[in-house]
């Protein structure tokens, strides 16, 4: 049977700390928020219900849902598609073929074209004709000749960003160039090597479980069998492969 990679997130274990999201930024070298884009492949949605003191607060980790019925793939106008499904169910993106038309971003129910602070978007767009990682290209110094500058950091480390994690993938660059979109690829460069997505490895709570849902012996499949799972915007018909089990506040 074909694999279907998925992520099951146990909200009771998740503490909303952000370690996954920041680890993702260090693994995938995503740039800093700018031009109405967050470039956060992993992020959080927060929700408050009720009134003091009977209230609940939920922090929900969000990432690309790697939908089985992915509107972004459908929308991609390029041949062969720059946004496509891999054999193991990952929604993959090809850097080379992407023309940056953002039709995927428009089609994805979990994405927005402009991301205000407090919002999130699966797909981000690297503005055309503008070098990415502007932060590490800025030559201005806080104190003339006394402090460094972003550009100097890049020069000294021969790297943009300086903490760039170098990896290779046939479809994908570890740092994206301008004029194309980007999104979570389930760390396919790691998964193909038998490693876990880095957000899973970095999560201190053990809330993120990654695995093949078609393999009934996988932890992910077992959790889905054991618990009732939710997906985001089920009505959109996208058949997401990121599942949420249990609740952030313990059920009493």
């Amino acid at each position: 049977m074909k694999k279907q990679y998925a992520m099951v997130i146990d909200l009771q274990k998740c503490v909303g700390c952000g370690a996954c999201a920041i680890a993702c930024k260090s693994e995938n070298n995503t740039q800093m928020r700018q031009d109405g884009q967050s470039f956060n492949w992993a992020d959080f949605q927060h929700e408050v219900k009720g009134k003091f003191p009977d209230m609940t607060h939920t922090s929900r980790p969000v990432l690309c849902n790697h939908c089985s019925n992915a509107p972004c793939v459908e929308a991609c106008p390029v041949t062969p598609k720059a946004m496509f499904k891999t054999d193991d169910g990952i929604t993959m993106h090809n850097d080379e073929r992407c023309i940056g038309c953002r039709q995927c971003q428009k089609a994805c129910p979990y994405s927005q074209e402009t991301v205000e602070i407090g919002q999130w978007s699966v797909i981000s767009f690297n503005k055309a004709a503008k070098d990415t990682h502007a932060f590490y290209r800025d030559p201005s110094e806080l104190i003339m000749a006394g402090t460094a500058s972003g550009a100097e950091m890049a020069r000294r480390t021969h790297s943009i960003p300086p903490y760039r994690t170098k990896y290779s993938h046939p479809e994908f660059e570890d740092v994206r160039r301008s004029g194309i979109v980007e999104k979570c690829i389930f760390c396919d460069h790691r998964v193909k090597k038998g490693e876990l997505p880095f957000c899973v490895e970095a999560c201190p709570s053990g809330a993120r479980v990654f695995g093949d849902t078609q393999d009934s012996s996988s932890e992910a499949a077992k959790l889905l069998k054991k618990h009732k799972a939710e997906v985001l915007k089920a009505k959109a018909g996208t058949n997401p492969n990121v599942y949420y089990i249990r609740s952030f506040k313990v059920k009493t």
Binding site: E96, R97, C98, I99, R177, G179
Partner: peptide
Amino acid sequence: GGGTRKSYSE
């Protein structure tokens, strides 16, 4: 320079 194009977005 025409021959070295790498990507569709270029």
